[in-house]
Design a protein around this nucleic acid. Structure first.
Length: 271
DNA sequence: AGGGTGACCTGTCGGC
DNA sequence: TGCCGACAGGTCACCC
């Protein structure tokens, strides 16, 4: 599921209820992608100071240390007034003085990791190599163009990699490339200054729009109150193989790049 | 160093 | 009805 917009929607939903809350208990189910890196009991008594986001990670600052949350492919976080009976795919509960935060994740690619600080090796292992935030001032057209210009890889897998810009996953990479009129297989270094600028704008536009309407709910994702997102209703190419392009009526195609499906319009994306 | 591949895990869907 | 393969929003460790 969760690309930047879904993680950001989740972050916004957690900030109100959890800021200032005190951790009262921790329950862990089946193992997630990485070990917690601390004794669950040691978190009890700490206060949640706030929730930030870095790429697709949620950073929960505690009165001592922080928790890094990742939703993997199928995770979602929800706040319950009281802790419900755990279901089959509920793998982590943080019971606080202001509700129970529960991670539901059928595929268990998600993770909750404790780190003593953001600069610690535990945190840097996960965050250290990440590219710039697409919705912050550090993401600007000129440096984006330069970064693309020195990579030979196809643009689509490069966007997914997160080394240049973070948070753009499979849905939004396909959509942004459509908006910019760029063929997903085009080598990054062959993208012109003008097209790079268009792609830069498209990435910001598609992510902002998705956040505004609650993200994409394909299979598993829902917000912190269980609500659905609506971006999947307005995708131009993602998951639309064989359907007519909404702009030109040409048939949307699917191909595989780096073992991931890429959707594109052969007519609109010629650059 | 960059770029490609396999692995992790579970559920769902389409075809035979 | 049942089985089997393909595929799903991510990312890391490993090869050349």
């Amino acid at each position: 599921m969760p690309e930047l917009p879904e993680v950001e929607v989740t972050r916004m939903g957690l900030t109100g209820p959890l800021t200032g809350a005190r951790i009262e208990a921790v329950y862990m189910g089946k193992p997630l992608r990485w070990p917690l890196q601390c004794l669950p009991q040691s978190l009890v008594g700490r206060t949640i100071l706030g929730v930030r986001r870095r790429g697709k990670y949620l950073l929960m600052d505690l009165s001592e240390g922080l928790l890094l949350w990742h939703l993997g492919m199928s995770g979602s976080l929800r706040v319950w007034p009281r802790r419900p009976e755990p279901g089959l795919h509920d793998h982590f509960d943080l019971v606080t003085s202001n509700g129970c935060l529960r991670l539901n994740d059928p595929r268990r690619f998600g993770a909750v990791v404790y780190a003593p600080s953001q600069d610690s090796p535990q945190a840097q292992l996960l965050l250290g190599h990440l590219g710039v935030e697409p919705l912050e001032p550090g993401f600007e057209p000129q440096t984006f163009y330069q970064a693309l210009h020195q990579r030979r890889t196809a643009i689509k897998p490069l966007l997914l990699g997160g080394a240049v810009v973070v948070g753009v996953g499979n849905i939004y990479a396909c959509e942004a490339l459509f908006m910019a009129g760029i063929r997903p297989t085009l080598s990054a270094q062959r993208i012109s200054r003008v097209r790079a600028k268009a792609l830069h704008a498209a990435i910001q536009q598609v992510l902002s729009r998705a956040i505004a309407i609650g993200g994409s709910s394909l299979r598993d994702f829902s917000g912190t109150e269980g609500q659905s997102g609506y971006f999947q209703l307005e995708t131009k190419v993602y998951d639309r193989e064989g359907l007519p392009c909404r702009d030109c009526q040409a048939t949307i195609r699917r191909r595989v790049q780096g073992q991931r499906s890429t959707f594109y319009c052969p007519q609109c994306q010629r650059a």
